[in-house]
């Protein structure tokens, strides 16, 4: 374990997510795949957490359950005082709508809408959103407002996706392999945008990656393997995204 890391977990901060004995089994017909095998975990308000693990370790499943996109097979997850594992489909939709921002590996922008409109489509249905232009300024895309996704590079598209995720002023930002489809230089620009959002807006941010280097910019790093948490540590010194290399 490097010198700037510690295993002590501060429990005085506000807990945003709490998971207990979380399991998820996918029924694939003939075989059953156990993606999560009893996960106990908290996320704290304002932190930037990086979830590391090889593919199949269950990190995406965990993020999807936290984001209200998937349901657990057993166990318990709460978001503040709301128990997500007991929420109805409608409640989960509302939860995603008002509290969660998502960023995905493949951007998932709407091809028929411009950068500004891709953000506006979310702000139109949110409570207390920021202006789409403002969100795009945060990710450094003020000069690309009226471009359609097909006219933007991969990195730019991902930054539009981040702007779309943060424009509703969500409490949590969940990012699944946000740099997975990008080269390292573009990836770092995207990570800078995430870092900035976390610092300036105080949005609790969870980033999934299999790129160990990205862990260095986190407040806390959570390792998953084979459906369980294998290691959690805090970085005493967080690296700035510019200082990351891979």
């Amino acid at each position: 374990m490097p010198a700037n890391q510690t295993n002590t977990v501060t429990s005085s901060r506000t807990v945003v997510f709490r998971a207990r004995e979380l399991t998820k089994i996918y029924d694939m017909g003939e075989v059953q795949v156990q993606a999560l095998r009893g996960v106990d975990l908290e996320f704290y308000s304002g932190e930037l957490a990086v979830l590391l693990g090889p593919s199949g370790s269950g990190k995406s499943t965990l993020l999807n359950i936290l984001g209200g996109l998937d349901t657990a097979t057993s166990g318990y997850v709460s978001y503040h005082d709301n128990i997500l594992t007991e929420a109805t489909e409608q409640e989960l939709t509302e939860y995603r709508r008002f509290f969660v921002g998502f960023v995905f590996q493949f951007y998932n922008l709407i091809p028929s809408l411009t950068a500004r409109e891709n953000v506006a489509i979310v702000t139109e249905i949110a409570r207390n959103p920021m202006q789409p232009d403002e969100a795009l300024a945060i990710v450094g895309l003020s000069d690309r407002l009226d471009h359609f996704p097909a006219q933007l590079s991969g990195g730019e598209q991902q930054r539009v996706a981040i702007a779309r995720a943060i424009a509703k002023n969500p409490e949590v930002l969940l990012c699944d392999e946000p740099t997975g489809a990008l080269d390292s230089k573009t990836g770092i620009v995207v990570l800078e945008a995430l870092d900035r959002v976390n610092k300036e807006l105080g949005t609790t941010t969870a980033v999934i990656t299999h790129n160990v280097v990205i862990g260095d910019m986190a407040d806390r790093v959570i390792h998953l393997s084979d459906g369980k948490i294998s290691e959690v540590y805090e970085n005493k010194v967080k690296k700035s995204p510019q200082d990351l290399h891979w």
Binding site: L69, T93, Y95, R96, F102, L109, I110, V122
Partner: peptide, 16 residues
């Protein structure tokens, strides 16, 4: 289907 799923993820209801 893809963009509709994306919008569902972003919190759009089924009706929307």
């Amino acid at each position: 289907g893809r963009e509709m799923a994306s919008l569902r993820v972003l919190g759009f209801t089924r009706a929307e």
